[in-house]
Simulated scan of single mutants.
Amino acid sequence: MPIEVILPKVDMDMAAGTISRWLVKDGDRVKKGATIFEIETDKSTMEVEAPGDGTIGRISAEVGAVVPVGVAVAFIFGEGEDVGAIRLPTEAPTAKTQDAPKPQPVAIMPATNGDSSKPRATPLARRIARAHGLELAALAGSGPRGRIRAEDVQQHLSTPAPEAKAPPAADSDLIPIDTMRRTIAERLVFSKTTVPHFYLGAACDVERLLKLRQEINAVEGLPKLSVNDFVVKALALALRQVPEANASWSDAGIQRHRSVDVSVAVAVEGGLFTPVVRAVEAKPLGQIAAEIKTLADRAKARKLLPSDYAGGTTTVSNLGMYGVESFAAIINPPQATILAVGAATRQPVVAGDEIRIGTRMECTLSCDHRVVDGAVGAQLLAAFRSLIEQPLRLLV
């Protein structure tokens, strides 16, 4: 019996994936475990292995095709098996299949109190449409009684949209929305419309931190540290001091986390990834720096694994390297906090009755008020500020 090669589910939120590359073609011999194609999701590019030995045939998804999870994209045939025996959903039935008993029609009762305006569609068609933000009402169904099938949705997605004509005075380009951008949009809209944000700010004195970092980086053989490495460590230790804030919201209750897993925002072309550094409170700065670099490199190469970005109990978003001095970030649900970090700038500082030039770094903590009350958020930011301003405490 031919073995189905299906598009696997590599992420909890994944409904479909894009075929980015085939490494085989119809007629090629493959061994179980060999990579045969690659798929691209909103977060990574994943390799898919052959589920058995045999000859590849009936490849039905071209490069660039968006395929729902669980759909067969090819088959692996054993010795002597008939390639033509497999009929794809888009193919007309053969004479043999036409002689098969036809399924009895199902009686459809007229709607009474339900919403009769809701378009009729198969569950798979609804899932594909939802994954692409597509309104089913805009489609014409080819199934019985105009029911919208998966093929109708896929045909609509593969049909180029008509060029949008800009007004005579306007000059603009229409950029298609890819899977990553759509996912970011959906998550941020969900966060801002369902999570009650409040914001706390502090200007941290980073003179000692910058001097300590310079001394460490000047020593041959020691790992090179960034300001962000210190920030990630300081936030983790602050959450250990204020464990009430190291929590997540759920319908079942508030979940307190025993370790601090910090998501680190990494900008990539066309979007943003937030890979996670695990148990940051227990790791030295050098190890944290190495893990952040590895995760950032994977993110930029679109090679993150689901385990690299799943979970996280808080997030650090640092735009200081872009010259941004202050900003407020949107919480990444179900996390309850995110720390926005600005650039370290030289500025006048009042010390007692004197004014001197110092270096300050603006930090803004966004909190989910369902989980973190104002006083708890203030304690967390104060603990973070104390650690940043006394950076030797981050080394012991």
Rank of each mutant, 00 (worst) to 15 (best):
F77L: 04
R87A: 14
V66K: 15
A74V: 05
P89Y: 07
G70Q: 12
V71N: 03
P89M: 13
V69K: 14
V71G: 02
G70R: 09
E81A: 12
R87M: 12
G64A: 12
A65H: 04
F77A: 00
G80V: 09
G84H: 06
L88A: 07
I76E: 01
P89G: 14
A72L: 14
A65Q: 09
L88Y: 02
P89L: 14
R87F: 03
F77Y: 05
A61G: 14
A85E: 13
A72K: 10
L88W: 02
T90Y: 04
V83F: 01
A65W: 02
L88F: 04
I76D: 01
G70Y: 06
G78C: 06
A72M: 13
L88H: 03
V83A: 05
P68N: 05
V67T: 03
V67G: 00
G70K: 09
A72N: 12
V73D: 06
F77I: 02
D82G: 01
V69N: 14
G84C: 05
F75K: 08
A74G: 04
D82T: 02
P68D: 04
F75Y: 15
F75I: 05
A85I: 05
D82V: 00
A61R: 04
V63W: 08
A74Y: 03
V83Q: 01
G64K: 11
V83S: 01
I86E: 12
E81V: 08
E79K: 15
V71H: 02
V69Y: 14
V71F: 04
G78E: 06
V63L: 10
G78D: 08
A72W: 09
F77H: 00
I86S: 07
V71T: 07
E81P: 01
E62I: 06
A72R: 08
A61N: 08
E81Y: 08
P68H: 01
V67I: 13
G64T: 13
F75D: 02
E81Q: 15
R87E: 10
V71P: 00
E62S: 15
E91F: 08
G64D: 12
A72H: 11
F75H: 13
